[in-house]
Amino acid sequence: MWPEYTEQSDNFGGKNKMIRVTDDVIIKTIARVLTPFIQVYALYVIMHGHHSPGGGFQGGVILAASLILLLITHGWAETKKKFSETKTAVFCAVGVLIYTGIGVLCIFMGGNFLDYGKLGGLLMVIPPEARSLGILGVEIGVGITVMAVMFSIFFDTSTGGNSPEDETTSSLR
């Protein structure tokens, strides 16, 4: 499953070594086995934010941590298949859209901004349950945005601002 290691595909011409494939078998295997469990745990933290500690921000950070783990062990060439830069930008915006969308929907239903109780008519449930569901939706939005922004911060600081997608396409072809 791992692509052939070449200097060009992973290293961006020697400019960036932080996000290239590591040659240590132990770390690579442990990261590969651990990543899905970390992701499920992150989603658990997001979804159970109203029963246990955690919530959108914490879950988003853990989800970003799993992607960062994948990035520093398997390199950009492998991570790109799961989470490219385009997806990062899209997810940054989509999370905020979900958050604001739920807030504005509450205004349209006749309440204040993020007044979840008014969503009860729309979801056909009683207001306390609507409040719970609304908080869940908002936390999903927060989690998506935090995940994308954290990943983007790590990626940009480690590449130094050079977009590797442009570089690989220009240097390989």
Binding site: M1, R32, V33, T35, P36, Q39, V40, L43, K82
Partner: peptide
């Protein structure tokens, strides 16, 4: 969602 994202890792 997780299986879609990382089915090839485990």
């Amino acid at each position: 969602f997780i299986s879609l994202l990382s089915y090839d890792l485990l």
